[in-house]
Simulated scan of single mutants.
Amino acid sequence: MPVTSVTTDPDALTLTMVADFPVPPARLWKAFTDPDQLQRFWGPPGWPATFEKFDFVPGGIAVYAMTGPRGETSRGRWEFLQIDDPAGYEVLDSFADESGEASADMPASRMTFAFTATDAGSQLTSITYFPSVEALEQLVGMGMVEGATMAMNQLDTVLQDLRDYAQGKGTELELLDDTHVRITRLVNGPRELVWRAHHDPELIRQWMLGPEGWTMPVVEVDPAVGGSYRYEWEPEPGQPGERFGFEGETLLSEAPRRAVTTERMIGMPGEGTVNDLSLYEEDGVTLLTVLIEYPDKETRDMILATGMVDGMETSYARLESLVLA
Results as ranks from 00 to 15, higher is better:
1 M>N: 12
1 M>C: 10
1 M>D: 11
3 V>C: 07
6 V>E: 08
8 T>Y: 06
11 D>S: 14
15 L>M: 15
16 T>D: 11
17 M>V: 14
17 M>E: 13
18 V>M: 15
21 F>R: 13
25 P>T: 01
26 A>M: 14
27 R>Y: 03
27 R>F: 00
28 L>W: 02
31 A>D: 03
32 F>W: 14
33 T>I: 04
36 D>N: 14
38 L>F: 03
41 F>C: 02
47 W>A: 06
48 P>I: 11
49 A>T: 12
51 F>C: 08
52 E>D: 08
52 E>T: 01
55 D>M: 06
55 D>G: 10
56 F>G: 03
57 V>L: 07
57 V>G: 04
58 P>Q: 02
59 G>V: 08
63 V>F: 15
63 V>E: 05
64 Y>A: 13
68 G>Q: 03
69 P>Q: 12
69 P>V: 14
75 R>A: 08
75 R>N: 02
76 G>Q: 08
84 D>N: 10
85 D>E: 13
85 D>V: 09
86 P>T: 05
89 Y>T: 08
90 E>D: 13
91 V>R: 09
92 L>D: 09
92 L>Q: 13
94 S>L: 08
96 A>V: 01
97 D>C: 07
99 S>Q: 15
102 A>M: 08
104 A>N: 13
105 D>H: 06
105 D>C: 03
106 M>N: 11
106 M>K: 15
109 S>C: 14
111 M>Q: 15
113 F>D: 12
113 F>Q: 09
114 A>H: 10
115 F>M: 12
116 T>C: 07
116 T>N: 13
120 A>F: 06
122 S>M: 10
123 Q>T: 06
128 T>K: 12
130 F>W: 07
135 A>Y: 10
135 A>W: 05
136 L>P: 01
136 L>R: 06
137 E>Q: 15
143 G>H: 05
144 M>A: 14
145 V>T: 14
147 G>Y: 10
148 A>F: 14
148 A>N: 14
148 A>D: 13
151 A>L: 10
153 N>Y: 02
155 L>S: 11
156 D>A: 07
160 Q>D: 15
160 Q>I: 12
162 L>Q: 14
166 A>L: 14
169 K>N: 13
174 E>I: 06
180 H>D: 10
183 I>P: 08
184 T>R: 15
187 V>P: 12
188 N>W: 07
204 I>W: 03
204 I>A: 12
205 R>H: 09
205 R>C: 11
207 W>Y: 00
208 M>E: 05
209 L>R: 05
212 E>Q: 15
213 G>E: 00
220 E>K: 12
226 G>E: 03
228 S>H: 13
230 R>L: 05
231 Y>M: 15
236 E>P: 01
237 P>N: 12
241 G>P: 05
242 E>D: 15
242 E>M: 13
248 G>I: 01
248 G>Y: 04
252 L>F: 04
253 S>I: 10
255 A>E: 11
260 V>G: 02
264 R>K: 00
268 M>R: 01
269 P>E: 02
270 G>E: 00
270 G>R: 02
271 E>R: 01
272 G>N: 01
274 V>P: 00
276 D>V: 02
280 Y>M: 12
281 E>T: 01
281 E>P: 03
284 G>F: 07
285 V>R: 09
286 T>D: 09
286 T>C: 06
288 L>W: 10
288 L>F: 09
289 T>V: 14
295 P>Q: 05
299 T>Y: 10
302 M>H: 11
303 I>Y: 03
303 I>C: 01
307 G>L: 01
308 M>K: 11
309 V>L: 06
323 V>R: 07
324 L>Y: 07
325 A>S: 08
